[in-house]
Design a protein around this nucleic acid. Structure first.
Lengths: 137, 137
DNA sequence: GCTAACGTTTACGTTAACGTAAAGCGAGCC
DNA sequence: GGCTCGCTTTACGTTAACGTAAACGTTAGC
């Protein structure tokens, strides 16, 4: 009875396909300290932990964060809380990120509202055109 | 009784101060077709229209859009709807943006939830530390 | 034993979004 | 008239985030 750990591992190409990016990008993220896969000889072997991290990376990118910012956020996830002072700093960072995200939320809401307005206008114009085409044609 | 148009105009340094960016950036946005100020001789003169555009630009940047994307969005605002086919394309573009923004919203909600969880954990740890400090001290 | 398929390192190239420095112009002031 | 202030153009430099190419190793299949 060996250890039945959910032993999911991934090759680099596999991950690349799944996330729709290149292997080059994945290695680049490793260079930047965002990933640290195990090795089998030279080959990189990614565990589910890396898989999770990649998901976080992609999400961060969709939100427009830089890789440095993304690393900061990811590092927040697996931090061992030894020093109290670090814990406080940690909470402060969380707070800052939260505010940034809230601002983004507000920006999105504003933008969506404006897009709605634009769409209403153009749908009106379109309907108008159609009506005239009928009347004339 | 001259025309009492709200004749607000701005110099480039003025705008730079207000938006917290450099004049270099503002000129750069002009190069990229995001702004097109009037001129007094050589000097650039910005009207309230440009002011609005700059606000849109900054909002776009906070959301992580590229200047090209931002220009696309801004151009949506002052488009004259002559061709019906263009109108339809226009609406399609609106739709695409909207979906992108919605995905961002979802990403933000997820992230905020995770940050909340992290903060709860670390506040717990912090309280624990404080308690022990009291008990021992 | 050759050739794909997949992986590796090393290194130079590219694009976006400005920064920075140089050199010059026009208005106001002392 | 000289100086400073604010603005201008021109142009080269920089950073981030990869792309792309070269040259090589290793497992699988025929």
């Amino acid at each position: 009875m060996a250890l039945d750990q959910t032993q999911t591992t991934y090759g680099i190409a596999e991950l690349a396909r799944e996330f729709g990016i290149t292997t080059r990008a994945i290695r680049f993220y490793e260079d930047k300290g965002l990933l640290s896969p195990a090795r089998d000889g030279q080959r990189r072997i990614y565990a589910s932990r890396d898989h999770v991290r990649l998901r976080l990376i992609m999400r961060g990118k969709r939100l427009g964060f830089s890789l440095d910012e993304i690393r900061e956020m990811i590092d927040l996830y697996d931090l061992d809380p030894t020093e109290v002072s670090q814990l406080k700093m940690f909470i402060d960072k969380l707070q800052a990120r939260r505010e940034q995200l809230r601002r983004q939320q507000d920006d999105i809401i504003e933008t969506l509202a404006e897009l709605d307005q634009l769409e209403d206008q153009s749908r009106g114009l379109l309907a108008d055109r159609e009506a005239r085409r009928k009347a004339v044609g």
